[in-house]
Simulated assay, not measured.
Amino acid sequence: MSTLQVREVRELTELAAVDALFERIWGTAPGASPMGAEQMRALSHAGNYVAGAFADGRLVGASVAFFAAPIGQTLHSHVTGALPGYAAGLALKRHQRDWALARGLSRITWTYDPLVRRNAHFNLAKLGARPVEYLTRFYGRLDDSINGGDDTDRALVAWELTGPGPAAVPPPARVPADAVTALSVRDGLPVVGRLDSPALLVDVPPDIEALRRTDPGAAKAWRLAMREVLGGLLAEGARVTGFHDRTSYVVIRESDDLMPDT
C-alpha cells in the first residue's frame, strides 16, 4: 500500500505539477486547468492554502483554498482534485480542516455539482458538510470532460469545523417516516413529485457525467429539474440534512406552524 503524505506546496515546479494534475483530472487543454501555477503561487505567497497529496512521492491530489467572508471565520476551498485509488480526497480535506483550525477558522465552504452522486455522498455523508445555497450558472458554461458544456449550477456547502471531523464510517442519514419523493429517476429521466411535504427525498441520477456524453437532452432535463426542486427548496429556506443511501438528498422544510410555546 502506498504511503500518503499531504503537505503545503509553494515552489513553482510543484505548482506546475499541480496545474498539470488538474488538467488531467478535468480533461482540459494545456493552460486551461481550473487553477494555474501563477495563481496558486500568488495565493500561497499571500498566506492562503495550496496543498498536495503525495503517494510514495508522486502527486496524486491537490487542493487550493483562500480566506473568505466572514473574514477570520471562513476558508473557501475553490479547487480540489484527486486521482482514484489513493483516498487522497479525504486526506486533503482532513489536512485542510486541521490547517483552518490552526488559524482560528470555524468554517470551510466550497461548491460542487449537486447532480454528481459520489460528490454529494462524500461532502454530506463522509464530511458532514451541508448545502446552504443553490447557485445557478455559477461559472457559466465549461467545456471540459467533467462539465461537458452543461450549465454550471452549483450547491454551496458549509462545513462547520466545531463539530466532529470526517467519519471513517458515517452513520446513515435519518429519513423521516413521512418523507415523500420530490424528484425521482424513471427510465433515466427526472420525474418531479410532491413538493408540499415537510420531509422530502430528492434523487440524483446514477451517472450524470456519462449522461452528458451519451444523452445531452436527458442531462439538461436533470439540470433543470434539480434547479427547480432542490434549488427551489433551498431558496424557500428548507434544510438538507443528509444524503440517503448514496442516492438522495434528505430535505426538511421548516414549518411556520411549528413554533415553540412562549
Rank of each mutant, 00 (worst) to 15 (best):
M1N: 07
M1V: 13
S2R: 06
R10C: 01
R10I: 00
L15G: 06
L15Y: 00
A16L: 14
A17S: 14
V18P: 00
V18E: 00
A20D: 09
L21M: 12
T28Q: 02
G31I: 04
S33F: 04
P34V: 08
G36N: 12
A37L: 04
A37N: 02
A37P: 06
Q39M: 12
A42Y: 02
A42I: 07
H45P: 00
H45I: 03
A46H: 09
G47L: 07
N48C: 08
A51T: 01
F54Q: 05
A55L: 04
G57E: 02
R58Y: 00
L59D: 12
A62K: 00
A62W: 01
A65D: 01
F66W: 13
F66S: 07
A68C: 04
A68E: 02
P70L: 00
I71N: 03
G72H: 05
T74A: 11
Y86C: 04
A87Y: 03
A87N: 12
L92R: 01
K93A: 04
K93D: 02
K93Y: 02
Q96E: 13
D98K: 06
A100M: 01
L105K: 01
L105T: 00
I108H: 03
I108P: 08
I108K: 09
T109K: 13
W110C: 07
T111A: 12
T111F: 08
D113C: 11
P114S: 06
L115Y: 07
V116S: 12
R117N: 11
R118I: 12
N119C: 09
N119T: 09
N119P: 00
H121K: 05
L124V: 15
G128W: 13
P131R: 05
V132L: 09
V132I: 15
E133T: 10
E133M: 06
E133I: 01
F138R: 08
F138Q: 09
Y139R: 12
Y139M: 10
L142F: 08
D143C: 13
D144W: 03
S145K: 10
I146A: 13
G148K: 06
G149N: 12
D150S: 14
D151F: 12
D151M: 11
T152N: 10
D153G: 08
D153I: 07
R154N: 04
A158S: 15
W159D: 10
L161Y: 06
T162W: 05
P164G: 12
G165Q: 12
P166Q: 13
V169K: 11
V169A: 14
P171R: 09
P171D: 15
D178Y: 03
A182C: 10
A182N: 07
L183I: 12
L183D: 15
V185S: 08
D187H: 11
G188K: 08
G193Y: 08
L195R: 14
D196Q: 07
D196P: 02
D196T: 07
P198A: 04
V202G: 15
V204K: 10
V204G: 03
A210D: 15
L211V: 10
R213P: 00
R213N: 05
R213Q: 14
T214M: 03
D215K: 05
K220T: 14
K220G: 09
A221L: 14
L230H: 00
G231P: 00
G231L: 01
E236G: 15
E236Y: 05
A238C: 09
A238Q: 04
R239N: 10
F243I: 06
D245A: 15
T247Y: 12
S248K: 13
V250N: 08
E254P: 01
S255V: 13
L258Q: 15
M259W: 10
